[in-house]
Computed example of a mutant assay.
Amino acid sequence: MIKLGVNQYGKAETRLVRVDRGDRHAITDLNVTTTLAGDLDATHLTGDNSGVLPTDTQKNTVYAFARDGVGEPEEFGLRLARHFVDTTPTITRARVRVEQYRWERITVDGEPAHHSFARAAGTRTATATYDGTTAWVVSGVEDLTVLNTTGSEFHGFHRDRYTTLAETTDRILATAVSANWRHESTDSPWAESFRDARAHLLAAFAETHSRSLQQTLHAMGERVLRHRDELVEVRLALPNKHHFLVDLEPFGLDNPGEVFFAADRPYGLIEGTVLRDGAPEEGLAWW
């Protein structure tokens, strides 16, 4: 017997830029992906599209909702998710992922510019899901590249016949942080929560004397949870951006830990979850 399995559809990566024109302009730069699921058997099995809300309509809805203002990306995602479920009879779950490209106001002679901006490091993310009864929100940051020039070790690891890696008590540790944190409710102080979570991730990376990137990952997630009571779970993916000491001996030169080759691949990829006591463990599958 053959049957239709789990399925969903939506509009990926709708680019949206909103300019709020007050005394000083403000910019909101988003990439929005909508994903809908529900009673969609007919369109798959017979081509009956009567229950399908076109993906083009989903795109248009994003733009129309932005006309009334965007606000925090979590709020915008929740508005859209609830709309799709509450207004489309066949849709029982909507998930809206929002990536916000952050811009900082340019300063000229110590004064903030009226309408000029520079792209800030790290992409803010928010994913809002609604199933008709319950809504939940996951916030985060991606591509937040950080580096420690010292304070990192890696030794004492298991060896087998294929191991060639040398042990080290002093290395460069660099990674591009992708972190997601789940809110206990849909009534969080979104802006403050994001600002503080990001700051605690950075502080933990800077302050942890690392004996492994896994240890650093745990320290980062733990610090966020200890300082933000509205969060119950932090998931991190940390690619190890390797920096290898260059051998300068063929040129008659020493290299006292100053010249490195920054490799882009292959790279170690460390992933893990840090949970508050009592929070359900959902495994390594992302929300």
Rank of each mutant, 00 (worst) to 15 (best):
A121G: 12
S188H: 03
R198P: 05
T168R: 11
G151R: 03
S152M: 05
R124L: 07
T127K: 03
H155L: 09
T145L: 11
L165K: 11
Y130V: 04
I106T: 15
A121E: 15
N180Q: 10
D160V: 02
A81K: 04
V177D: 05
T186R: 02
A81T: 05
D143L: 09
F194L: 06
R105F: 03
V85W: 00
A120C: 07
V177T: 04
F117A: 04
L202A: 08
D170G: 01
F194A: 03
E111V: 09
Q100H: 10
T149K: 11
E104S: 15
A113Q: 07
T145C: 14
F84G: 02
A94R: 08
S193Q: 06
Q100W: 07
S185L: 01
E153N: 07
R161S: 14
F194I: 01
T175H: 10
T133D: 15
A197F: 04
D86Q: 10
A135T: 08
D160G: 08
H200W: 14
R171G: 01
T125G: 06
G151E: 10
W103E: 10
R182H: 02
T123E: 12
V141I: 15
T186Y: 03
N180W: 03
T134F: 13
Y162Q: 13
Q100R: 15
V137D: 04
R93V: 08
T186G: 02
S116Q: 13
R195A: 11
L201I: 04
R102N: 12
F84V: 01
A81S: 11
A199I: 08
T87P: 08
R105T: 14
Y101L: 15
P189L: 05
E111I: 07
W190T: 02
R102D: 10
L202F: 09
V98H: 06
E153V: 06
A176H: 04
A94F: 06
R182T: 10
T123D: 13
S185C: 02
A166E: 11
A126W: 02
E142G: 11
H158S: 05
I91A: 01
R102Q: 14
A81H: 06
A121T: 12
T127G: 04
T90L: 05
T90P: 00
T169N: 09
F84M: 03
T150G: 09
